[in-house]
């Protein structure tokens, strides 16, 4: 039992750091809700994994990344906003997922479960998080420049479309491992809330991305600790921890006027 808790806490730290760090870009891109909704797309993938007895994480990632590519391509062709396309895709995926996922596993898929975590899960989470963070760090400034002006970024030789696609791929990876801990309904929280809490306390990019990662880790770690202590589902506990941090940062920003 103690081993399971330790593995879960370590997974929480890795997922929290990577989701917070990648989420800091998602929030700046004004795609916070895209990140949230995208996570729901994983549900049919999880269901297929459970039904056909292979690792649900692989099914979740396959669905997430395939949807991300479809959305990315349709957006480029039609110029319909990301939000609208993700809105359509995630509700479709949710509908399919709820139809096919076996009922006993539905709650676990939606809200997460840490009672049967093994060392392989922890190692996979660590590897994926490190890869996602290192690759995101390499494209972070390019994506920020593209947010300021896409023309400016292209004029500097940056392939904005390919960089965005790589970023979506990495977000899909991190969201897929986050689902293990907090479930599909709540993993979007780990992408959004640590980043907006960090934004409350940052006037430069270095501090913002660092605090996003730290708040992500603290949110996931404290949520999982509470969950195992109180014997409650981890997803909601992670959300409560994150909201507590976010509230503190709002008060700190209000009192110290950090971002004005």
């Amino acid at each position: 039992m103690l081993e399971t808790v330790i593995y879960s806490l370590l997974i929480g730290i890795f997922v929290g750091v990577s989701a917070g760090y990648l989420g800091s870009l998602m929030v700046l891109e004004k795609m916070a809700l895209v990140g949230d909704a995208l996570s729901h797309v994983a549900l049919p993938g999880l269901a297929i994994g459970i039904l056909f007895n292979f690792n649900p994480f692989i099914g979740a990632f396959a669905f997430l990344f395939t949807s991300a590519i479809i959305i990315w391509h349709v957006q480029r062709v039609t110029r319909i906003s990301f939000e609208a396309l993700v809105g359509a895709t995630f509700t479709l995926a949710l509908a399919i997922g709820i139809m096919i996922i076996p009922e006993p596993e539905l709650l676990e898929a939606l809200f997460g479960d840490i009672t049967n975590v093994i060392i392989i899960d922890m190692v996979a989470a660590a590897l994926i998080s490190v890869v996602a963070i290192v690759l995101t760090k390499a494209i972070y400034r390019k994506l920020v420049l593209a947010m300021i002006s896409e023309d400016l970024a292209i004029s500097k030789g940056i392939n904005v479309a390919k960089t965005n696609l790589l970023y979506l791929f990495l977000v899909s990876l991190v969201v897929a491992i986050g689902i293990r801990i907090v479930g599909t309904l709540l993993v979007g929280f780990l992408v959004i809330v640590p980043a907006i809490a960090a934004k409350n306390l940052s006037s430069d990019m270095f501090r913002y991305s660092l605090l996003s990662a730290i708040f992500g880790a603290v949110t996931a770690f404290s949520g999982i600790l509470l969950s195992s202590y109180l014997n409650l589902p981890p997803g909601p506990m992670v959300v409560f921890s994150g909201i507590a941090i976010f509230t503190i940062t709002i008060v700190a920003n209000w009192k110290m006027q950090i971002t004005t």
């Binding site: 700046l28 430069d204 990019m205």
Partner: peptide, 18 residues
Amino acid sequence: NVAVSDIPLSVKEFLSIV
């Protein structure tokens, strides 16, 4: 046109971007 109002980016960081 540039979109900078919402991005926590210092002048120093911006000047050295890429």
